[in-house]
Amino acid sequence: MNYFGDPSIWLPWTFAALMGLSILIYVVLDGFDLGVGLLMPLADEDEKDRLVASIGPFWDANETWLVLAVGLLLVAFPPAHGTILTALYLPVFVMLVGLILRGVSFEMRAKAPIAQKPVWNAAFFVGSLMASLSQGFMLGMYIMGLTWTLPHVAFELLTAIFLTVGYSFIGSAWLIWKTEGQLQIRALGWAKGGIWGLVMGIGAISLATPFVSTRIFDKWFSWPEFAYLSPLPIISGALVIFLWWQLARLPLLNDRWSWTPFAAATALFTFAYGGLAYSFYPYVVPEKITIYEAASAPESLFIILIGTLFVLPAILGYTILSYYIFRGKATALRYD
């Protein structure tokens, strides 16, 4: 097959890749700021401000990756967008209310009368919790083929909890990088308490996914695919061991290596996500609709692609610029 000849082949593939990339970026970036929200109840009053300050300049843009991901699903695979989102109607509602509560309380906690601050802090936590749990639940539903049956719901509740703890882990890893002193030491403790969520979440999904369909099972456990894929679990295992080791010995003099837990957590998320993507390709609605069946007309995809080629590098560029400007340890959020 000539991949670069037939636009009805390579355009859907490109858009699936772009959508996959934005979901991954979303999961890592909003993962850490949702995670920081989940840690709020564990922090004392002064630390709470520092927690929020560590994500202040970034969270708006982080959530935009979700809009891009759902936007790409909407524009590139319209029938899949409808099928998936109507099936996920309730968890999507919970997530949206969570994201609304979170975003609003982020501003309100600093601007409303001081007496209301505990209420908005609580809303910030509850919003983060609703968003994380529902995203984990949706992940489980997607793996299980978007159906509501009792064993499936049990699995989905598990993925909801694991993803939430996983987010709190990457949130603590972010804090280890962006804070110092007593708070950094506490963040190390939170990370140690949260790493099991990440490990068990990845473990449960890795174990369950191959048994959802024989097609996925064969993709993983036939020769020689098995050999090509074996580095994935091996590297992931090594990353977990590395994390355990780093969490035990940090912090080091001059704050050396404080960025490594976040980098390792990002790598773990990426590998787990890559495995999922491999399992489900070429389906966009699991076992029902492939990306090629669901794709919009090539001429519409093409006009988006042209823009994407110019705009996406610019987006990545100024996103990196923003992280560069706010590099170093988080300082108090002030407008002047």
């Binding site: 987006i315 100024y318 923003s322 959020l333």
Partner: peptide, 8 residues
């Protein structure tokens, strides 16, 4: 993205 820079 530029909101972050504008505000903080």
């Amino acid at each position: 993205v530029f909101l972050g820079i504008m505000l903080f």
